[in-house]
């Protein structure tokens, strides 16, 4: 199956010039919602040429409609190796090459390990880990041709603390991190970067991560309460604009950056001077 393509070659508003040189050609996988959508639209607004890849055609089309720069939509199911490879190839063809891959596809489950089924484990690993491997493998020849970059959205939950009810999810993110480091070792000619994301629920509106649908109300509220009590949650959420800046920084850097983190701002200190 070939990935199908639509796009806007005539941007609604003139794109801002790239802050780091000529427009880069970027494939963002998982761009129909959540942080991937925010990153794709943000890079497009900065002047990059962006292919938005995801499963859901209607949401992809709406995202492309909102893009202020060059953006195309390509259907991509990362859990289907052949389909995913065709979609990445289509992105490279449509963009005239590929300077970067951003992998942001991710699914979450809020559930105790004692009730997490093999099907749930398989579903999470298929998208969060195997999908990343499949997309990277497909993008590899294109990235080698441009000495390109690959950036993967990882999670602070795989770095610090133990997050009850997110056992399967954090295991996939830890596996993803290890895999990225190996890609980096095996292909030093390219840049592989782990982008560690702090507490986040995507961007505003349609960019909001569809977290609600992934747990029963009891589990969702239990999770929020437990993470709060254990001090795992931050004071706020990651600003999607900061994430776009971080991705743009990695893409524009001549250095190969192994890890970059974006976390929410710290809570204001009590008794801090209010000015003067």
């Amino acid at each position: 199956m070939n990935g199908s393509v639509t796009g806007t070659n005539e941007p609604a508003t003139p794109p801002r010039p790239s802050t780091t040189g000529p427009a880069r050609r970027v494939a963002v996988v998982g761009a129909s919602s959540g942080l991937g959508r925010s990153i794709a639209l943000g890079l497009s607004a900065r002047g990059d040429h962006v292919a938005l890849l995801a499963r859901r055609r209607d949401r992809l089309d709406r995202a492309v409609d909102q893009a202020s720069g060059h953006a195309i939509a390509i259907e991509c199911d990362v859990t289907d190796e052949v389909h995913c490879a065709a979609a990445i190839a289509a992105a490279a063809t449509e963009l005239g090459g590929l300077d970067a891959l951003v992998y942001s596809s991710g699914v979450i489950a809020i559930e105790p390990l004692a009730t997490t089924s093999a099907a749930t484990w398989t579903r999470l690993f298929a998208t969060n880990v195997v999908g990343a491997a499949t997309a990277t493998r497909a993008a590899l020849p294109h990235l080698r041709a441009t000495h390109g970059r690959a950036i993967y959205l990882s999670s602070v939950s795989a770095q610090s603390g133990v997050w009850p009810l997110l056992g399967a999810y954090t295991a996939t993110k830890a596996a993803l991190d290890k895999m990225i480091d190996t890609w980096r070792d095996e292909h030093p000619e390219l840049g592989f970067t782990r982008l560690i994301v702090g507490d986040s629920a995507g961007g505003p509106g349609e960019s909001a991560t569809q977290l609600g649908a992934d747990a029963s109300v009891d589990l969702l509220l239990t999770g929020l309460d437990t993470w709060q009590r254990r001090g795992l949650r931050s004071h706020g959420l990651v600003d999607p604009d900061d994430l776009v800046s971080a991705v743009a920084y990695v893409l524009g850097s001549t250095a190969s950056i192994p890890v970059i983190a974006v976390t929410p701002p710290p809570a204001p200190m009590h008794g801090a001077p209010s000015g003067g």
Binding site: G203, A208, G212, L220, L221, L224, L237, D239
Partner: peptide
């Protein structure tokens, strides 16, 4: 609690 808990997850 529910409304603020949910709001804390939405940017």
């Amino acid at each position: 609690q529910q409304a603020t808990g949910l709001a804390s997850m939405v940017p």
